[in-house]
């Protein structure tokens, strides 16, 4: 008797995919229901957890608010500039550390130990150096993403298969040719992963700096809505930032996906 038990492998996969989708929808639904229950219950002070309709209204208002978009542009601009500055310098330093065993021995410990320290403690220094405007935010973002990119590039360079370098040398390639025709293509994956990580921390660094001291940007908007106790709008902003982060990650995921020449 042909039934679900004796179904084809394709059918089994479909059922499984369907089950996964159902579970995901279920989780989302559960969260929404719980949220609304807490909001309506009166357990917490008014608007600490706004009701779903209030949240939806705030989201819609945000979506058509030019103030939101102008501040979003500020944050994105700062993060992009931070990634460019931190990324390029991290890339250059990574290449140097990867290429020279001597330099690596000398400088890599600094990079490794400074890497995980929370960069936010440097913010007051950044304000003194770059002012209270966009400069200090970009500096924070750049400082944050410099380290993961430098480390990924240095490690990626060392992992390049040695025989490929010997091939290049045997054909009398110059060091620049070795870099452009062999090292860089071979390091595509570590570089992309480093940039992906860097993008994330650049956004974090920029946003965090904006929440500390700023009069523009999404971080600033969040603090402003918080101090005026406009909770629904604040939550709406948080959701917007969340979506921004997911979007950036998804974009990098596309770029980092399986390349043409890999299985």
């Amino acid at each position: 008797m042909a039934d679900a038990l004796s179904g084809s492998p394709a059918a089994a996969v479909q059922t499984k995919a369907g089950a996964v989708l159902l579970v995901r929808a279920g989780i989302v639904a559960a969260v929404l229901i719980a949220w609304q229950a807490i909001a309506a219950s009166g357990l917490l002070y008014r608007d600490v957890v706004p009701s779903l309709p209030a949240l939806a209204r705030a989201l819609l208002q945000l979506a058509v608010d030019p103030v939101f978009y102008s501040n979003l542009a500020v944050t994105l601009g700062e993060a992009a500039l931070a990634l460019a500055i931190g990324g390029l310098s991290g890339f250059a330093v990574g290449l140097l550390l990867g290429a020279s065993r001597f330099l690596a021995g000398a400088y890599e410990p600094f990079v490794y130990y400074l890497g995980p320290t929370p960069k936010i403690i440097f913010f007051p220094v950044m304000i003194m150096w770059f002012g209270v405007g966009a400069g200090s935010k970009v500096a924070m973002g750049a400082l944050s993403c410099f380290f993961p990119i430098a480390i990924s590039v240095a490690a990626g360079m060392r992992e390049v298969d040695a025989v490929l370098i010997r091939v290049g040398r045997s054909f009398r390639a110059t060091p620049l040719q070795l870099l452009t025709t062999i090292y860089l293509p071979a390091m595509r994956r570590p570089i992309v992963n480093g940039v992906r990580l860097g993008l994330g921390v650049a956004i974090i660094g920029t946003l965090l700096a904006e929440t500390k001291l700023s009069n523009r940007g999404l971080g600033y908007l969040v603090i402003q809505t918080y101090t005026t106790f406009n909770m629904p709008r604040m939550y709406a902003l948080l959701i917007a930032v969340f979506v921004l982060a997911i979007g950036a990650n998804a974009l990098m995921g596309r770029l980092a996906g399986p390349l043409r020449f890999e299985r």
Binding site: V163, V167, S170, L259, F261
Partner: peptide, 15 residues
């Protein structure tokens, strides 16, 4: 004047 062929896998995977 010398061309080398190595023992290990040496083709460039990305080309």
């Amino acid at each position: 004047a010398i061309g080398m062929v190595f023992q290990e896998e040496s083709t460039f995977p990305w080309r």
